[in-house]
Design a binder for these strands. Structure first.
Lengths: 214, 214
DNA sequence: TTTTTATCAATATAAATATATCTATTTAAG
DNA sequence: CTTAAATAGATATATTTATATTGATAAAAA
């Protein structure tokens, strides 16, 4: 029996989910009620088989000739990603990148609300970025308690990333989104998602090189 | 025969390359000359077999009990990634994210020099961000010709991303690093590397959800 | 020397992911 | 009512990537 284990969704599938979600929502506002995987695949430059496979993880099933119920599909994807309930986050490091993330309102659609910034720089304390206040690192404990912070975002320089991670973990945060180019050392129960621009640049660079060689 | 086709390096391997590169360089400054895959794996939280597999793509071979020659290894990785020769880039969209990328000097270590910004906003024209001037979009043609721009970085809002991509392509740029959450439509010979924070957040969110269910 | 040990290299296996094929079902058109 | 077209769903295959195993080799130790 080849029953799909819906508990463990492949990462590539997960990475495609937001695109599905956005696309489906854009159809929804147009008043569309059903959508076929063929249509989705067509519009998102994917192949129908893959879309169908991905949709299988929602445990929904579509109707032949009709497709999937749009609303249920959106709901199911948001449920899978946990985007149906908002998580609060704080961001450590209010430099350019930190500011960029704080200012990007789009995360709210993804169940993420960055409610405050943390920075060493005293000049920044008390100031606001995109309506979010900046606090000193010592405040993390209070922030976490008062706001049910679930996610710590790290946009500090590489040198201080581990320190910030430790501070987050010490204050009970169990999920880190790390933009610093270092591998963080954390307890096993802490989830770390690394965002590494160098990695992406490596892929791009190599593809450019290959393209030139053709 | 299972000869490895070194032309097509797996993307996961490519993504690990920068970490190797940084790590190896850090050893190099300490005066170390040889390094074993066991040591690398240990320090980078990988397994030796994987490191060895990755190193195979450099076409170098190591010596038992000794390891790989550090300098040759770094050279080979930089060659693979094309990081041995600098590429010039311009960045379209000098908002927070654009500023963050412009200000991040680290890219020079990765063979990338962002030499200018492009923005619609007239107030920004002529101003400098991290020593790089901001120009109006109409200037792209001139910039490309005068500076051998190879890469266009897109950090404009989703709505205008396709427009910027078109403009880049029209002016002969064949590689795009796209931070806008849209799928760009470009000719087949243009390389596009998409950077999608929503995708990463999806993975993180789901992992958090799973962790909680344990 | 000889033996031991660390490490590489080659090969094999396993796991994850992507793609293809086929069948049954449903709807819409005739 | 019947038939044809479209599509989901199940299953099979291919591809990619990760991991394991085995043997060879060179350096260090006995």
């Amino acid at each position: 029996m080849t029953q799909i284990d819906r508990q463990s969704i492949p990462v590539p599938t997960l990475r495609r989910m937001p695109a599905y979600c956005n696309y489906l929502k854009s159809l929804s506002v147009k008043g569309i009620v059903y959508v076929s995987t063929t249509a989705v695949a067509n519009d998102l430059n994917l192949i129908p088989i893959q879309v169908r496979k991905d949709f299988e993880y929602t445990r929904l099933s579509g109707k032949p000739k009709i497709g999937y119920n749009l609303e249920l599909l959106i709901e199911a994807i948001e449920y899978i990603l946990g985007w149906n309930k908002m998580s609060n986050a704080v961001i450590a490091g209010v430099g350019n990148l930190g500011k960029a993330l704080l200012s990007y309102q789009g995360f709210k659609n993804y169940g993420l609300d960055i409610i405050a910034g943390i920075d060493q720089d005293k000049k920044k304390h008390g100031k606001e970025v995109a309506g979010r206040k900046v606090y000193p690192p010592e405040q993390i404990g209070v922030l976490v308690k008062e706001n049910k912070i679930g996610i710590g975002i790290i946009t500090v320089p590489a040198e201080s990333a581990q320190l910030m991670a430790d501070l987050f973990v010490k204050n009970g945060i169990t999920a880190l989104w790390n933009f610093a180019p270092v591998r963080l050392n954390v307890p096993a129960d802490v989830v770390v998602q690394n965002e590494n621009l160098a990695s992406s640049l490596a892929v791009l660079s190599q593809r450019i090189k290959q393209q030139k060689e053709k």
